[in-house]
Write a protein that binds this DNA or RNA. Structure first.
Lengths: 179, 179
DNA sequence: CTCCAGTGGAACATATCTGTTCCATTGTGG
DNA sequence: CCACAATGGAACAGATATGTTCCACTGGAG
């Protein structure tokens, strides 16, 4: 099935490129369990594959944001939900964070809806008085992504469980932001 | 002078590769203001250059660690000093953190003296009761590097000043670790 | 001034990756 | 069984990066 093969290629590409952004298409093909020519059938040029990965990740991030319902309930609990959803992005999270130069489409230049939702949530935390007013929203935004990235890195390096690592991430983040 | 050219190449390579780990030797040469053949005179193969960068950074990290005197005074103040010293590594910090796959010499496999000093300092913070006992030392170690990386990223993205960015970094880190 | 270490650049061979074409194989629905 | 869409792989051409050789130039030490 076309859609099935396409998904396998995209997933394998994210997994492969998140570990080595310079990996060749042969590497991606091997990881996906398909021939290299098949990749070219779905994505004529390398840049087409990169663009498709970016679009795919944007969709996943948007879906994760929606699932977290960032506008509902207390700001800190909403932020927890958002982090949990983003954490599940796994390799995609690593790729977006560690190789931002790959994500250079026009859609990435402007602030995405997900960016805006996070910024808005942080500002809500500020006005509710539950997020340290001395930490600017853009710093907090970077801190959130950085902590999530660190959580995954901790799993890779220390072999910690997902649950354990996310727990440390959320605990550290909450304390950072506390008033 | 030989040593002078060598330094220019190493510094330019760190600056260039920290922005794009796949940059060509021509890019590095241009950044260093030397010809490409000159690079090959000092470092016959690309891998020789990478290795030299790694060795150079290990030395710089060791020197920074020594300057911070991590064994002296209260643990939290020592950690502050260490962060300030590591922060000054600049591009080298970005490279080590964001492209660890480039640093694959035998010297990087084992725990470096700097790693041990940081772990020891964190454990001292634990026994002194000034670092949250629920945060394992290896997590705190990754958190420290992650925060420093985030601080530099914040400078690149938001155009913040070094002083301002380091301030946010230290404030966030101290609060994370507080008991 | 003269020598020469250090350098830059042209030119070349080689390796790797990319992108394309062509053909054989597979397996699935009719 | 047959038709056909999907795939894998061989083979090829082009682009780019790497590594080498050679030669001309320059500026400082003697």
């Amino acid at each position: 099935m076309r859609a099935r093969t396409r998904r396998a290629i995209l997933d394998a590409a994210v997994a492969t490129l998140s570990k080595d952004s310079g990996a060749s298409l042969s590497d991606v093909a091997a990881a996906a369990g398909v021939g290299r020519t098949t990749i070219h059938r779905y994505f004529p040029e390398r840049s087409d594959l990169i663009t498709a990965i970016g679009d795919d990740l944007l969709e996943k991030i948007a879906a994760a944001t929606e699932r977290a319902r960032p506008g509902e309930g207390p700001a800190l609990q909403a932020l927890d939900r958002l982090c949990q959803q983003y954490f599940e992005l796994g390799d995609g999270l690593m790729l977006v964070y560690a190789e931002p130069h790959l994500m250079t489409g026009e859609k990435w230049e402007v602030e995405t809806p997900a960016d805006l939702a996070l910024i808005e949530l942080i500002q809500r935390g500020h006005t509710e008085g539950v997020i340290d007013a001395q930490l600017p929203a853009d710093w907090v935004q970077q801190l959130v992504w950085s902590m999530l990235y660190t959580a995954w890195q901790h799993i890779r390096d220390s072999g910690a469980s997902k649950h354990e690592s996310l727990g440390l991430c959320l605990r550290s983040l909450r304390k950072s932001l506390a008033t």
